[in-house]
Write a protein that binds this DNA or RNA. Structure first.
Lengths: 192, 192
DNA sequence: CGAGCGCTTGATTGAGTTCAAAAATCGTGG
DNA sequence: CCACGATTTTTGAACTCAATCAAGCGCTCG
């Protein structure tokens, strides 16, 4: 999926007024580097599909430290349209690491989308969620069982395109370690 | 959902031969404590709904250490019927922590289930996945930003019914620490 | 009743944190 | 295009939390 408007095209039977409503629930916005577009506690659930640039989603712990949850480069979605009724408020912040262009969709789109889904689209949607579960599962396992060095090497393999674009301390934050630790760890790796 | 057979009841339009096929894809089995019912690398995707007893799903790392991914008491599903085509082989083991009674469904059920889903059931299915994503997200964040002690206290609050039933070293394994560390950490807590 | 399993406790080690400061890099205005 | 200030990375020393190794205790179930 490269655009939320693809979703609308998958709904040929949609009445015109509905279609208009959904079209209006997607806006293309420009986000400046550093700009925060979602904060913890936000009730409004929005999905941000990155057309150009790079977003990050992160939590802030009790001590004010940031922990990056995902990077979202071109083609990725940050924030998700999914709505968990048991926990309606976001835990996560989202901001831009580069000047970005983003399609912002509010949850109307998703909910209406669901109502009109055909069997094919349904499977796509479920696949997307399953893949997400799978990615998260691996992250949990790796946080529990791998050293920082192993996690870093894994990151290099999995997200080479991101390594180039973000400051090293952000990678440290994704890995769950301090910038100093990552720097030293890299030194160790080079020494071999 | 307390039984996979509930799924079948949600499909009133199902032709009889199809229904019979699906009914045959669910088996009730007894699993003895310690018995392993899924291993890493298994291609066959099965879902295990616990009727009685307690299952655990866990990974084994390079050093042979086990890391518990979830506990599944009565009413929970271990293993999941979801099929990720990009990564068809399980990373996880599943075994029984108590003598258990389990409904075992193979992925036929799920796939057919999807084909016949109505709008209502679809939303339920997607909700289930979303909740799972949400749980995993919290686990990732907590592994990155909380100390072992904080994670233990969180576990006590979230899964009080499980604390009573599993050996302490299993809780340590879930928290991502050694049994010794958990024992000492508990000592500290009592001392206050 | 004994052997083994699980929990505790202690000593030692190691990975990663914290704090501080220097070195390298980046970005922006002149 | 350069220079300066700000940010990022590196390096070092001291410290902390949890891992590892080892020994002892208590329970249970075979």
């Amino acid at each position: 999926m490269n655009s939320f408007f693809d979703i609308l095209e998958k709904l040929p039977n949609l009445p015109d007024d509905q279609r208009k409503l959904l079209e209006e629930s997607v806006k293309v916005i420009k986000v400046k580097k550093g700009e925060v577009i979602q904060q913890r506690g936000d009730l409004v659930r929005k999905g941000y599909l990155v057309k150009k640039g790079l977003l990050r989603s992160y939590s802030v712990d009790a001590k004010g430290k940031e922990h990056i949850y995902i990077f979202a480069p071109e083609g990725w979605i940050a924030g998700g349209l999914e709505f968990d009724s048991e926990n309606p408020r976001t835990e996560l912040f989202i901001d831009a690491l580069e000047d970005s262009e983003v399609e912002m969709a509010n949850s109307n789109l998703f909910n209406h989308y669901l109502s009109f889904l055909d069997e094919e689209a349904l499977k796509v949607e479920i696949s997307r969620l399953i893949r997400r579960v799978s990615v998260l599962q691996n992250r949990v396992i790796s946080l529990m069982s791998s050293t920082a060095t192993e996690r870093y090497e894994e990151f290099l393999k999995t997200y080479p395109q991101i390594v180039q674009r973000v400051p090293q301390r952000m990678i440290a934050s994704y890995l769950g370690i301090t910038p100093e630790a990552l720097s030293k760890l890299k030194g160790e790796l080079v020494r071999k």
